[in-house]
């Protein structure tokens, strides 16, 4: 890394990184970021510490950015973990992923999911198209996987912008969906990984079996509304079992409009539970430790709860 690193400060690492992005006018993935101080909000607003990072443009990224600039001038992209572009150089992309991950851990409670939700909308506006050739690769890979699993099926692909949607048909729907879509999600995850290595272009991939996704969304929304009704009735907090990010999103979106109840995700990792509760009541005996008031418990050191 020949470029000199600049210093950035911010309330949190996230802020500092954002400043760095603004300063360089590029996306976070293009920066080589070194976190010196993570910063802390302190206790009761005391002992505040600023986050402090050093950042420089990645050398590989510089060339790439210039090349891209000619085609579509875009000053800044929203940083996102899942949608980080696949870079030709494996090491570089790996590094970027770690940086983003680190930042995730330091984020305050509020903006946990925001980044990932805004990002797709921004990306949609880009005028990129997926070539037929790449579509065929996706189709072949998925068909191959299904065949090896012993469930040969028809795969249909359709694309719009940078997203590819695959639909599986052919008699093995139940086995391939798995419990609560577990197998389907695993397939989608593995396929994404395989495709990311085969196709250097960025693309968004989703797999569906029959109309499973749609059905599941409806089911979740119905369940959410039903639980919300119960919460309103007796004021007790209700819990939805661990869901993946996109499913959690459905639940939160469904309940967003309802001002009488709140929903939030709790837990660590990919799968989190969703609590549905009445706002403003503070700690309830029946609700256990889930939303204890600040400072009641020994400080919860992992701020990964989100709204």
């Amino acid at each position: 890394m020949s470029l000199e690193k600049k210093k950035f400060y911010g309330k949190e690492v996230t802020d500092a990184i954002k400043k760095a992005c603004d300063e360089f006018g590029v996306a976070q993935e293009k920066l080589d970021i070194e976190v010196v101080e993570t910063g802390s909000t302190g206790i009761f607003g005391l002992i505040r510490k600023k986050a402090y990072i050093k950042a420089a443009l990645k050398t590989v990224a510089v060339e790439e950015e210039v090349a891209k600039e000619v085609v579509v001038p875009r000053p800044q992209k929203a940083p996102s973990v899942q949608l980080a572009p696949v870079e030709p150089d494996e090491d570089v992309s790996e590094g970027a992923e770690e940086d983003v991950h680190l930042e995730d851990g330091e984020e305050s409670e509020d903006n946990g999911d925001d980044l990932t939700e805004i990002a797709p909308a921004l990306l949609d506006t880009e005028e990129e198209q997926i070539s037929q050739e790449n579509l065929d690769i996706v189709k072949t890979e998925l068909s191959r996987l299904l065949e090896l699993m012993g469930y040969p099926s028809q795969v249909q692909t359709e694309s719009s912008g940078i997203s590819v949607h695959c639909c599986i048909q052919g008699g093995f729907e139940e086995a391939l969906t798995g419990q609560d879509g577990k197998t389907l999600d695993s397939l989608q995850y593995i396929l994404r990984k395989i495709i990311a290595r085969k196709i250097p272009d960025r693309l968004r991939l989703s797999i569906d079996i029959g109309d499973f996704r749609e059905r599941r969304q409806l089911e979740l929304a119905e369940k959410a509304v039903e639980l919300a009704r119960m919460v309103k009735e007796d004021g007790k907090t209700q819990v939805l079992p661990a869901l993946n990010p996109s499913e959690r999103r459905v639940v939160h979106m469904t309940l967003q409009e309802d001002k009488d109840i709140r929903s939030r995700s709790v837990g660590e990792g990919l799968f989190k539970k969703i609590l549905i509760y009445k706002p403003g009541k503070g700690k309830k005996p029946g609700a256990r430790k889930h939303h204890s008031p600040r400072g009641q418990k020994v400080k919860n050191s992992k701020p990964d709860a989100e709204k």
Binding site: M149, G178, S186
Partner: peptide, 20 residues
């Protein structure tokens, strides 16, 4: 994979295949 995510995915795909 990160936190065993890839291994978990391979396992559940394998489980589905064995389930046949």
């Amino acid at each position: 994979g990160k936190q065993g995510r890839t291994a978990r995915a391979i396992r559940s795909i394998l489980a589905a295949a064995a389930g046949k």
